[in-house]
Design a protein around this nucleic acid. Structure first.
Lengths: 193, 193
DNA sequence: AGTTTTCTGGACCGGCGAGTCCACTGTGGT
DNA sequence: ACCACAGTGGACTCGCCGGTCCAGAAAACT
């Protein structure tokens, strides 16, 4: 499929419009017609740019949102080299999800695309990148003598990832950020030893 | 609605059949017709016993499954009074979710019923009961002098709940239990101080 | 037995939503 | 100017699925 300048713009407009829609207004089920209306396009355009239909489009949106997740934690996530930096990161994570509230764009997307290989790939990629950043941060703290060497950096990084995921999930179910704060603070305490 | 003995049996058969179906074979979308086929009932029976339709039925199944979640952790969860008991509990949680694999009955249900008040109530109830058990266990350990008093029991219990949720979520996305093990072990380490 | 209420089967309806099709319009190259 | 192909609009198809309806079987009650 050869895209012209105009074509690329339209394709991008569809993805970003869909993403914005999900962020603002999470409906349980998102239909192609919703996206069509929001982005001011027609059915044929959607299938023109995403020949494989719904799944392909949703995966594109999911990848777009996955990038946002990590971007929103920068620059903190990329430089976890002091306790202050960890605190700032903690705050940015909580702020991000507090703002997002009960809407979870990625969650909705995954709910719709379900358990296709593509969906797993998007999630796995996101989580492993995320974990790698945290792990690197722990390593940096150990190198600086701020965290004890005995700690298994990768294991604790995995715990952070799981904790954040769970905290966010509880936030979406109950509307409270308490669990997310609790798990982050507890794990930070553990790092401090 | 007055139910006869036969009626109660049928109603129960529908709930348990649906639950078993979800446990064994998680399809992305569960339809009333699936349940009808699985349980050997007819459309009219479903609406006879669940006049409000899909949502009411799914919530009933969800409550049924939520009970199972806590039951499956017993008797360990109810008596977290020694390190050995905590280890057994840890193992039972991991075993349960390892066996469940990528299928999450509750997750599927919640995905379908979406964000109705009833769905939130089921999840909130489950999580708060779960957390209360863990919190009580931490309290018992503190009373026995096995865990330092300075620890905020409720906060750490919240961290456990969030961690388990996240670990299970990662398990469902990637198929690996590593994150669940990591977060449980890390938090247990933290308890040990 | 007779009557009332519950239980069951299954045909039917109506809407929704993914995906198709075709005619038409732009746009970029030669 | 022309032409080939990308871009666009929107009507249409078709299957799925939640929900309705009614007629008949089976209990329960008196």
């Amino acid at each position: 499929m050869a895209l012209t300048t105009k074509g690329r713009a339209t394709r991008q407009r569809i993805i970003e419009g869909a993403a914005a829609y999900l962020r603002s207004d999470e409906p349980a089920g998102v239909t192609l017609d919703d996206i069509r209306a929001i982005t001011g396009t027609s059915k044929s355009q959607i299938f023109h740019y995403f020949p494989d239909g719904k799944e392909q489009l949703f995966l594109a949106v999911a990848r777009h949102e996955a990038d946002r997740v990590l971007d929103d934690q920068q620059p903190h996530l990329g430089a976890l080299t002091s306790w202050a930096a960890w605190e700032r990161w903690r705050d940015s994570v909580i702020a991000r999800y507090r703002a997002q509230g009960r809407h979870c764009p990625l969650g909705t997307l995954m709910g719709q695309v379900g358990s296709t290989p593509g969906a797993h790939e998007v999630v796995s990629t996101l989580l492993s990148q995320w974990q790698a950043h945290v792990c690197k941060g722990i390593g940096a703290m150990q190198a600086a003598g701020l965290v004890r060497e005995a700690l298994d950096a990768d294991r604790v990084a995995a715990a952070f990832i799981a904790g954040i995921q769970g905290g966010v999930q509880v936030l979406m179910s109950t509307g409270h950020v308490g669990h997310l704060e609790a798990v982050l603070d507890t794990l930070l305490d553990h790092l401090r030893g």
